[in-house]
Simulated scan of single mutants.
Amino acid sequence: MIVSTIAQGLLWAILGLGIFLTFRILNFPDLTTEGSFPLGGAVCVTAITSGISPLIATFLGVIAGMLAGLITGLLFTKGKIPIILSGILVMSALNSVMLFVMKSPNLSLLNHHKIFNYLDSLNLPPNFDKIFMSLIVVGIVILGIILFLTTHLGQAYIATGDNEDMAKSLGIKTDKMKILGLTISNGIIALSGALIAQSEGYADINKGIGVIVIGLASIILGELLFGELTLFERLLAIVVGSILYQLLILVVIKLKLDTTYLKVYSSAILAVCLMIPQFKLKMFQKKEMF
Score class of each variant (00 low, 15 high):
S92D: 10
D165R: 15
M133E: 06
M98H: 00
L216H: 02
T49C: 06
R24N: 13
F290H: 10
T5L: 14
F226L: 12
I48Q: 05
K80I: 10
A271Q: 08
P29V: 12
D175M: 06
N186V: 03
M98W: 01
I63Q: 02
V62P: 01
S4I: 04
L122E: 07
F100P: 00
N106L: 13
M1F: 02
V101D: 00
L147R: 09
F226C: 01
A159G: 06
S108D: 11
M102R: 01
V211N: 07
S4T: 05
I56W: 02
A271I: 09
M66D: 01
S218V: 00
P125Q: 03
K103I: 00
Q8T: 06
L224N: 15
G181I: 12
M166N: 08
L191W: 01
F116E: 02
S104W: 00
A13D: 00
L85C: 10
I220D: 08
G61S: 03
T5R: 14
P105C: 11
S169T: 15
V213T: 14
K168P: 03
T160S: 07
Y265I: 10
Q155L: 15
E200G: 07
V240T: 12
I63R: 02
I196T: 06
M98T: 09
A42H: 02
L270M: 09
F132Y: 15
F148W: 11
P125S: 06
I253F: 08
K80Q: 14
N123R: 14
N163R: 03
I88S: 15
I184S: 08
Y245N: 12
H112G: 04
L231A: 08
F284S: 14
V251F: 10
V90D: 13
G222Q: 06
I214F: 05
I205L: 00
P82Y: 07
E200Q: 12
G73A: 02
L17D: 07
H152T: 13
G222F: 10
L224G: 15
N163K: 05
L135C: 14
L119H: 09
G69A: 01
V211P: 07
M1V: 02
L216A: 09
K178C: 08
N117P: 02
N111P: 11
M133S: 14
V264C: 09
D120T: 11
P38H: 02
T49F: 01
A203D: 07
L55E: 04
I172C: 04
T33Q: 09
